[in-house]
């Protein structure tokens, strides 16, 4: 296995059992990986399984079969303590999910303090730094519902960064935002990318994906049907499904 690979995925399958007992096969054998510092954009039609793929990486969804190896450890093994793994894999959600009953400061410091990684004082300092980095230093004692959507998502990114993760997983981070707020969130993500962060990004922002990604995965019907550099996938797609998808989303 390649030494720089921070995360590798082998033959990942995910099947959901519906309420009426039928099964829905969402991921049908995905094999891929990410190098330290690499930025991978995951695109595809809705229902293609791209979000499920991302959510399997930190076992928000339990994979049905397949192996995921993170920094040399098989995290799908029953022996793995997934809570320890998740500390090092930050996740940013479409709907932010800030904790509304906690101030911005507490949103950022809850996890590191509870897990005894930092004292409250150390975590406060780190929170201050991270908020400055996402341009919200003055909001540290604010309540989440006093923030705009874009500000909430920037806080959510800072919260994910508070655990000093090795990888950040972005699950459509701008899809729930008003158009005028998308830019500020993308700017923060761009800055993170430039700083060398390893990132998986599920997105519909094709322009942004093109700009920051080292590699693009096109997922369709639960498999990676095309992959390559942004230029290859966006400008010279080979698969008919990719061409059709891109023609639909890029026309707008």
């Amino acid at each position: 296995m390649n030494e720089d690979m921070i995360l590798t995925v082998e033959d990942l399958h995910k099947t959901f059992t519906l309420q009426d007992g039928r099964t829905l096969s969402v991921l049908n054998g995905i094999t891929t990986g990410i190098r330290r510092g690499e930025k991978i954009a995951v695109i595809g039609p809705s229902g293609s399984g791209k979000s499920t793929f991302l959510r399997c990486l930190n076992r928000m969804e339990e994979p049905t079969s397949g192996t995921i190896t993170f920094k040399g450890e098989d995290i799908t093994s029953p022996k793995c303590d997934i809570n320890l793994v998740r500390r090092k894999m930050g996740m940013v959600f479409q709907h932010f999910y800030l904790f509304p009953h906690l101030t911005v400061r507490k949103n950022l410091t809850l996890a590191p303090v509870d897990q005894k990684i930092m004292t409250q004082e150390e975590a406060d300092v780190k929170a201050q730094e991270l908020l400055a980095r996402v341009g919200l230093a003055d909001k540290i004692d604010e309540w989440p519902d006093r923030l705009s959507g874009g500000q909430k998502q920037r806080v959510a990114i800072a919260r994910a960064m508070a655990m000093s993760p090795d990888v950040l997983l972005f699950d459509e981070p701008t899809s729930a935002l008003d158009p005028e707020m998308i830019g500020e969130v993308l700017d923060v993500m761009k800055e993170l990318a430039d700083s060398g962060m390893t990132m998986y990004l599920v997105t519909h922002e094709m322009g942004f994906a093109h700009k920051i990604a080292d590699r693009v995965l096109f997922i369709d019907k639960g498999i990676i049907s095309e992959e390559g550099t942004p230029d290859e996938v966006f400008d010279r797609p080979k698969q008919p499904r990719t061409i059709e998808f891109l023609s639909k989303v890029l026309r707008r």
Binding site: F93, L110, Q115, A160
Partner: peptide, 11 residues
Amino acid sequence: GQMEAARSLGL
């Protein structure tokens, strides 16, 4: 999502 966000931080 609140539970997911908390769990994603390793809680």
